[in-house]
């Protein structure tokens, strides 16, 4: 294990159990349509109120992956505050990655309620675990984060447990 990886691993291990600042967000129709376009959705329920109503929704739904895919729900940090690899926004900005290069390893999502336009919510990320794994290119730091999204009326919306891979 290199010193950088060791240092980052130790720093992250020390933060297990810590929570990031609660993140505020809102689902609006423009954001939903842009996400749907960018992800290649062809279902009309994401683009048409009539189609959404015909499918039984009271408001325009968001694609199920939208909440956990969006990295930043506010304005985010200034460009020069980003890490060298460009990361450092939103739900992982508070984590002490050190010099690790980070990539997504996968997620597990539980959807508790429909994700509808007009919903405002809070997301709270928690660092659940940090482990080491040997990969083909050396040691990998496996970082597990659980983020709970809750609507302002108290309705749980989504629980996202994701794995980030640091190297």
């Amino acid at each position: 294990m290199t010193t950088d990886v060791t240092s980052a691993y130790d720093g992250l291990r020390g933060a297990i159990g810590a929570q990031g600042q609660p993140l505020r967000g809102a689902l609006d129709i423009v954001s939903i349509e842009r996400f749907a376009r960018a992800s290649g959705e062809i279902d009309e329920i994401y683009y048409s109120d009539d189609a959404a109503r015909a499918a039984g929704y009271s408001a325009r739904p968001a694609p199920p992956l939208m909440l956990s895919s969006v990295q930043e729900w506010g304005g985010g940090p200034a460009v020069d505050a980003l890490r060298p690899d460009g990361s450092g926004v939103g739900k992982e900005s508070w984590l002490p990655f050190g010099g690790l290069q980070i990539m997504g390893g996968g997620q597990s999502l539980d959807v508790h309620a429909p994700l509808l336009a007009g919903t405002t919510f809070t997301a709270v990320p928690t660092l659940e675990d940090v482990t080491l794994k040997s990969g083909g290119s050396g040691e990998l730091v496996m970082i597990t984060i659980t983020t709970r999204y809750m609507a302002d009326d108290g309705q749980p919306l989504l629980t996202c447990t994701e794995t980030l891979i640091g190297r």
Binding site: G40, P64, L65, G104, G106, S108
Partner: peptide, 25 residues
Amino acid sequence: ACLLSQAALAPFGPGATIRSISWQN
């Protein structure tokens, strides 16, 4: 993951919803 969810939902019409999804890259 978006492509995966689209494939999972497509056969069942616009009223179908994802309850859970888990993936590994």
